[in-house]
Every structure is written in C-alpha cells, then in structure tokens.
Deep mutational scan, measured.
Amino acid sequence: MTFKLIINGKTLKGETTTEAVDAATAEKVLKQYANDNGIDGEWTYDDATKTFTVTE
C-alpha cells in the first residue's frame, strides 16, 4: 500500500510517499524521514486517504 506524508513545516513544506504493509510501518518510516529532515510537530492520520500530516 502507498502512504502519503504531507509536511507543513516552518522551513520545509511538501509531500512524500512510502510503500508499506500497514499504517504502523508507514508511520515509523515517515516519522524517521521527518526526523532526519528536522521536522517536529503534531501528527495526524486519515485512514480513508492513507495520508499522514505533520504540522510544525
């Protein structure tokens, strides 16, 4: 399955996707991606669209 991350950061905005077997696995990968890029904020997840959003 494809999961999307929408980034609403102070210095970085955009989106990325990852392939994962489930939402929990995708969340780990996407949170690591955000952490690697210095993004720390509030996370939400929409199961209907398989989209995570992080807002700083």
Rank of each mutant, 00 (worst) to 15 (best):
G38S: 08
T53E: 06
D36P: 01
Y45M: 02
F52L: 02
W43F: 05
T11M: 09
I7M: 10
T55Q: 08
G41I: 03
M1A: 10
T25V: 10
F3P: 00
T55E: 08
I39M: 05
T16L: 11
N8V: 15
D36V: 09
Y45R: 02
G41A: 03
L5Y: 02
G9Q: 06
Y33I: 06
L30G: 01
W43P: 00
K31D: 02
A26I: 02
T2K: 08
A24E: 12
G41P: 01
E42F: 10
E19L: 15
V54F: 03
A34N: 03
A24Y: 14
K13S: 09
D47I: 10
L30K: 00
T55G: 05
A24D: 12
G38R: 06
T55M: 09
T51K: 03
T51A: 05
T16W: 14
T18N: 03
A48W: 08
T11E: 15
D22L: 04
T51Y: 03
I6M: 08
Q32N: 13
K13C: 06
E42R: 08
L12P: 05
T17R: 08
L12I: 15
D22M: 03
A34Y: 02
T25A: 12
T53R: 06
G38K: 09
K10E: 11
D47G: 11
Y45N: 00
N35E: 15
L5W: 02
T2P: 06
A23M: 14
K50A: 08
A20Q: 11
D40C: 07
E27H: 10
I39E: 02
G41M: 02
G9A: 09
K50L: 11
T11K: 08
A23H: 07
D47W: 13
D46C: 06
M1W: 14
I39S: 02
T49C: 04
E15F: 08
A24L: 13
V29E: 08
K4Q: 06
L5Q: 00
T11A: 13
T53W: 08
F52S: 00
M1Q: 13
G38F: 08
T17F: 15
Y33N: 02
G41E: 01
T49R: 07
T11Q: 10
G41H: 01
A20H: 04
F3I: 02
I6K: 09
V21C: 08
K10M: 10
D47S: 13
I6C: 05
V29Y: 15
T55K: 07
F3M: 01
N8T: 08
F52P: 00
K10A: 15
V21S: 14
Y33P: 00
T53C: 06
L30E: 00
